[in-house]
Design a protein around this nucleic acid. Structure first.
Length: 542
RNA sequence: GGCCCCUUGGUCAAGCGGUUAAGACAUCGCCCUUUCACGGCGGAGACAUGGGUUCGAUUCCCGUAGGGGUCACCA
């Protein structure tokens, strides 16, 4: 009885791995094209970090490379129904559609599928069989209790924990004995037989982190679990080899596994990909920082951005900012270029995690939205409202009118920057809608607060000065005339030069009109507001 | 605890042995402005710490402290 018999006993039906080597031909790409991937688990939660990773993967693959998505569903306990659709939808929402993927109906798009690990069981088993035959893997019969015991002893002896070297029980089990146990029906899993020596170091050059040095791996990690599915590590080896991945872009929590992964590739005889470990986004928590957490931080979910109405362009711009900080300088110089034109350099990515700064994200978003046309703002807000705000939706039903409202101070050289997210819009424009405006509300006036004075100003203005057909200059001059007639300065400068000589200035007076008509002391251009409101509606407000 | 990585203003960050140590967000002041926003100008604000190496260290080396990651039949 030899290793081959053992391998055949464990995987009697597995094809020889060479079958897959031939089936999945090497990709025919230009020399520097990057093949990379996003490999999420369908857990029902899409983390913003996944979008971040995909963004980077997508831009890395843009020059003739391939960006594919592979669903990592080997842990069936964590799988959630509809998880795949959620992931795909999220990518689509952010314009990050992969070149190759599997859809929610298990239909593959691409020639290197299945792009879902639970559908690749046979493939993994073929490769596990290969390792078994070569003596690079072995069945392990240790129970959970055995493993606990080993760990206990290790802790007692103050040695590293894990299944390795002298602590292993099954690594050197005679083949005949293993065969007998299997035939006997003893439960087992398959382990990798690590050739590593932890006294030796391996040097690895990470694309982002640079040179790192680790002790060699000597852990005999599990490659095939008792359910017949592979562990992440083994699936990574097989899938990324077969799918032709040449750069693995993943979260930096994987960095510590690099010695293992490199060893796996080496032992299997395959060329290892390059690794780029990206630092996670962090969040301030008391004194320290921690990763953005699914449980504690709503902004960790991609759904948050959709719900808040933060446009995808804003999120993407902000993420690009974090990824390559010189992006914002480029953006300033190239305000109208598409983000794809930015010369992204993965080597410039930060090695340590940045605090996620929502204030800055919203600032980025204000800039992004300020470049939108009124039509675009309208459409986006409308779509958002359809799903999240019925009241706003009603306000927007009159498109022609809404377009006017949203178009105030928009489209010129210095556009308004007051909208950071679609959920802001209702509050920003509400006074332009009569049913949202309560003329008897408690308004806060700025300088002039005396009720009689306010009434006097308003009365006089609408009786003597206001004319709907005035152009802006005339309107403005009349405001000055009004001010002057009541003892206020025509010009602010005039007032500042001689504050004793006036009751105030034209700004104070126009603020009274502004508050009376809008209920607010801060609004965009009052002339435009009055114009859009129209005489009839205005008079009802006074 | 073992192993690994990191440490420049409140935040994100340029910097690669000699700089007045960029820029952005936030903050403050001024200007512009009939309000606000925008825009312009300016202010305050940083190289964690102790040793080396060097003519000279934010930059290189070692230690200390702090932070983060990882040590599963989870990914």
């Amino acid at each position: 009885m030899d290793r081959k018999d053992l391998a055949n006993l464990i995987f009697p039906n597995a094809k020889d791995y060479t079958y897959y080597e031939e089936k999945y031909a090497k990709r025919n790409l230009t020399e520097n094209a990057i093949v990379t991937r996003f490999a999420p688990s369908p857990t029902g939660f899409v983390h913003i970090g996944g979008i971040y990773q995909s963004l980077i993967a997508k831009v890395m693959a843009k020059n003739g490379g391939v960006f594919f998505v592979r669903i990592e569903d080997t842990d069936q306990k964590r799988e959630v129904e509809g998880g795949i659709k959620q992931i795909l939808d999220a990518l689509k929402d952010f314009d990050l559609c992969p070149d190759e993927y599997i859809d929610e109906n298990d239909v593959d798009h691409g020639n290197y599928g299945p792009y879902k690990q639970s559908l690749r069981k046979d493939i993994y088993q073929s490769y596990a069989k290969k390792l078994l035959e070569e003596g690079n893997a072995y069945p392990c019969f240790c129970s959970a209790e055995d493993l606990d015991k080993i760990r206990e002893n290790q802790e007692k002896a103050k040695e590293r924990t894990g299944y390795y070297g002298k602590w292993t029980k099954c690594r050197n089990m005679p083949i005949d004995m293993a065969i007998e146990k299997i035939k006997n029906g003893d439960p087992y899993i398959v382990r990798f037989k690590s050739p590593g020596n932890p006294d030796k170091k391996i040097k690895h050059k990470d694309v982002i982190k640079g040179s790192v040095e680790f002790p060699e791996n000597d852990q005999d990690i599990v490659i095939i679990k008792s359910d017949g599915l592979p562990t992440y590590h083994f699936a990574h080896l097989v899938d990324d080899h077969l799918m032709g991945t040449n750069m693995v872009i993943r979260a930096d929590e994987w960095l510590a596994s690099v010695p293992l992964h490199l060893q796996l590739f080496y032992v299997a005889g395959f060329k290892a990909p390059k690794y780029a470990h990206i630092a996670p986004m962090m969040k301030l928590d008391g004194e320290g920082k921690r990763k953005l957490s699914k449980r504690k931080d709503p902004e960790s979910a991609v759904s948050y951005y959709k719900e808040e109405g933060i446009p995808k362009e804003s999120v993407l711009e902000y993420l690009m900012n974090i990824a390559n900080s010189n992006f914002e300088i480029w953006r300033k110089q190239n305000p109208d270029k598409k983000m794809e034109e930015f010369d992204f350099d993965i080597k410039k990515m930060s090695v340590s995690g940045a605090l996620f700064d929502m204030v800055k994200m919203l600032d980025v978003s204000k800039n992004v939205i300020s470049k939108f046309s009124a039509e675009e703002v309208y459409n986006e807000t409308y779509n958002w409202a359809k799903e999240y705000d019925k009241e706003l939706l009603e306000m927007l039903e009159n498109k022609e009118y809404s377009l006017k409202v949203l178009g105030i101070e928009r489209g010129n050289a210095k556009p308004r920057k007051d909208i950071a997210k679609w959920s802001d819009v209702k509050h920003i424009i509400s006074y332009m809608y009569d049913d949202k405006f309560d003329k008897n509300g408690e308004f806060e006036y700025q300088k002039i607060t005396d009720k009689d004075e306010i009434d006097k100003i308003v009365k006089l203005y609408f009786e003597k000065y206001y004319d709907e057909s005035d152009d802006k200059e005339t309107w403005f001059n009349k405001m000055k005339d009004l001010s002057e007639s009541l003892g206020y300065a025509r010009e602010v400068k005039e007032y500042k030069a001689n504050p004793e000589g006036f009751k105030g200035h034209v700004g104070d007076v126009s603020t009274v009109i502004r508050v009376k008509i809008t209920g607010r002391c801060n609004t965009p251009d009052l002339y435009e507001i009055l114009k859009i409101l129209g005489k009839e509606r205005i008079l009802k407000r006074i």
